[in-house]
């Protein structure tokens, strides 16, 4: 159902864009030095772009039912292969960024939440608000200038090796961590204020034991729920990071496909992203249900 909706919506949107698709595809294929009427005509003849819309849509849906995404109009390669390659690059980047953000954000947030109003809490509020307020592309450029150009510790851009992960994932992670640190801090402060927390301490548990036994599970529920929402921010961020750091990811592919009217490619990428969103949220619901017995009851 989601697949049909996304596919149809992207199809209608791409069809209703102004400009002749054959020209745009030809420009995408041959570049601005070589796009001319002959190239556009060749594209039009090859792809049968003049045909009516409804049969084209129905055919795409039929192919989809057989898990056939078709071929890219620009490169001629099977879309499944292109997406698999690009999704892999984007997903690994996103995964590293999320792990990194969980390493940075929640521990700091929990420490701050244990002492609301303390020095760490106040510093964290300023820093996380500051980071959140900086556009990600600016943060990325600042990190490149400092860590790659000035200090020469890391490569400025590129992909393929482990060290290429660090800068883009760190940029993404800082943005995510700025928010989940706040979530963790608020959750921790709320929990530390509850009667069961005082009871745990009263019965003789140390601060550390209380946190491990009673705190973490409680804090993790809002954090994980919020992770689902952050998926959208993450997709957005990945698109920007891919363009700045030269990553061959799905965001990069989607932007280029829209520019050159590569309709099957747009449908394929939008579908994968849409299904990905549904899947991530389903997984998070399951995870929350397991963590929080109150939801299951």
């Amino acid at each position: 159902m989601v697949a049909v909706l996304i596919g149809t919506a992207t199809f209608v949107m791409m069809r209703s864009l102004p400009g002749d698709a054959a020209w745009r595809i030809a420009a995408g294929r041959y570049g601005y030095d070589n796009v001319d009427a002959a190239a556009a005509d060749a594209v039009r003849a090859e792809l049968g772009l003049d045909g009516p819309a409804l049969p084209a849509l129905l055919q795409w849906l039929g192919d989809l039912a057989r898990f056939d995404f078709g071929n890219s109009l620009v490169t001629g390669q099977p879309i499944v292969d292109e997406i698999a390659h690009q999704l892999g690059a984007s997903a690994s980047l996103a995964l590293v960024a999320v792990l990194l953000s969980l390493l940075i954000g929640p521990p700091l947030g929990i420490l701050a939440g244990l002492r609301p109003g303390g020095l760490l809490d106040r510093v964290l509020l300023v820093v996380s608000t500051g980071i959140k307020a900086i556009p990600q592309f600016l943060l990325a450029l600042v990190l490149i200038v400092v860590l790659a150009v000035q200090l020469r510790w890391l490569p400025a851009a590129g992909h393929g090796e482990a060290r290429h992960f660090i800068l883009p994932s760190l940029t993404l992670a800082l943005g995510l961590a700025a928010v989940n640190a706040r979530i963790a801090r608020d959750a921790m402060a709320r929990i530390a204020d509850m009667p069961f927390w005082r009871f745990a301490k009263w019965k003789g548990l140390s601060e550390r034991q209380t946190l491990m036994r009673h705190g973490l599970r409680n804090v993790s529920v809002p954090l994980i729920t919020y992770l689902g929402l952050q998926f959208v921010t993450l997709v957005e961020g990945v698109i920007i990071m891919e363009s700045i750091f030269g990553w061959p990811g799905i965001g990069h592919a989607l932007v280029h496909a829209i520019f050159s009217r590569d309709v099957p490619m747009v449908q394929g990428t939008a579908l994968v992203l849409g299904l990905g969103f549904v899947m991530v949220n389903a997984l998070i619901d399951v995870a929350v249900r397991r963590l929080d017995p109150r939801v299951a009851a």
Binding site: V149, P155, A156, A157, G158, S243, I244
Partner: peptide, 19 residues
């Protein structure tokens, strides 16, 4: 060979010795 579409990034890669 690496394709890097943003000119700012390319210049930074030259500056850092990465490329």
């Amino acid at each position: 060979y690496s394709g890097v579409s943003r000119v700012e990034t390319r210049a930074l890669m030259a500056e850092s010795g990465e490329a």
